[in-house]
Amino acid sequence: MSKRRAVALFVLLALVWGTAFVAIKAGLRTLPPVLFAAVRYDVAALVMLCYAAASSDYWLPRTRADRLTLLVEGTLIIALYNAFLFVGQQDLTSGVGAILVGVSPLLSTGFARVFLPSERLTAVGVVGLVVGFLGVALVARPSPAALLGGAAIPSGLVVLAAAAVALGSVLVQRLDGDISSEGMVAWSTALGAALLHAISLGLPGESLSAVEVTVTGLLAVVYLAVFASALGYVIYFDLLARVGAIEINLVTYAVPVVASISGWLVLDERLGGLDIAGFCCIFAGFILLKRRAVRAELGPLLARFGFR
């Protein structure tokens, strides 16, 4: 893959995933949160299963590792992530939600230390974690008054969503299933949709009678299912295979920028100074944690443009 094509796909992925937060906010105005997420993945699963069957020879799970991988992805990365995110996003702006989700690479480092014995956390890495969580505190601002009044709950739910993704990513790396990325995404999406429906049934206010069918809601579901989920994951795994985990993880920090700008343009949302400072801290924490890998991955590219 040429650098130009990789950059174009990176930008496209940031645009699709960043604007997804605006689509979530728009859909939440008329749809119950968890049911909204479930329907999104119903549509996405149908699209992805058709795509996987047409594009991959190994799209059906064959081994125990494959099945465990799909179970982890469907439960943690799809179901729990989206349940926490959609409920928490009801009371947050698009940009703040995207910033808090950006803590997932930091959390994955902590989980990797527990579940992947080969991973080691240096003193600088510890500083990176502390700086990153300082950023979360700046965005969430969990003061005693906010905690007692419940104002910090939405931010806490989104951080839990990021933790679910981080833990799921580490466990998937440990399981190391052989199923193709297309099949993995398709089946985990289908399982995640089923689990989201089960969660929705157990929550108050999540009945079909609470659904208000609007053009905005339908467009939000279609956009999230086809573009943010199906197209987004295809681009993500294509880039992951070709440019590596460090460069693709940087999209996590481009997404809040896109989400903030699109939220301002479409929904008239604003980011405060502490939100921006928190984002900078989270990004700085990531760089400190992954400094060697970032230098190894991006060094040749920076050298090409005269940076040493």
Rank of each mutant, 00 (worst) to 15 (best):
G125K: 06
L147I: 08
G168Y: 04
L195M: 15
G150D: 01
L100S: 10
G232Q: 05
R5E: 04
N249C: 06
L68N: 13
G192K: 02
I246W: 01
L13W: 07
F279N: 06
Q90S: 10
A23W: 06
C280I: 15
A303P: 02
A293D: 13
G306K: 01
I248V: 14
V294L: 15
P144N: 10
L224M: 08
L271A: 15
Y51A: 13
L134I: 14
I153A: 13
Y58D: 14
I276V: 15
A6E: 12
D176C: 00
I199A: 14
L274H: 13
F286K: 01
F36N: 03
V159N: 08
G306N: 03
L106D: 05
F286S: 00
T75E: 07
E269C: 10
S2C: 08
G18I: 01
A161D: 01
L134C: 14
V136P: 02
G102A: 09
A164S: 15
V39R: 00
G88H: 11
L265T: 08
T214Y: 06
S118Q: 08
G183L: 02
L49M: 09
I77V: 15
V159Y: 12
G285E: 09
N82M: 05
S188Y: 01
S260Q: 07
L71F: 10
V103W: 06
A245N: 10
T30E: 07
I276A: 14
R291P: 00
G285P: 03
A220H: 01
L288K: 07
V165G: 00
Y51P: 00
A284K: 10
L35G: 01
A45N: 03
L80Y: 15
L301Y: 13
V124Y: 06
G183P: 00
I78M: 15
L71H: 05
T19W: 06
L239K: 07
L129H: 11
A228W: 04
L35Y: 06
A8E: 07
G95T: 03
C280H: 09
S94M: 12
V34I: 11
E119F: 05
M1R: 11
L129G: 10
I99Q: 10
G102F: 04
E119I: 01
R4Y: 08
M48P: 01
R113L: 13
C50K: 04
L231N: 06
L80Q: 13
A52V: 09
L106W: 08
A162F: 10
S94C: 13
R174G: 00
L196N: 00
V215W: 11
P142G: 09
L70P: 02
V126F: 14
E119Q: 04
L60F: 14
A146Q: 03
I287F: 14
L107W: 04
K25R: 15
K3I: 03
L274R: 14
L107E: 05
R308K: 02
Q90F: 03
L201V: 13
G128C: 11
A193G: 12
E119Y: 02
A37D: 13
P105K: 05
A186I: 11
Q89M: 14
I24W: 08
L231R: 07
R141N: 12
T216Y: 04
G183I: 02
V131H: 03
D66S: 09
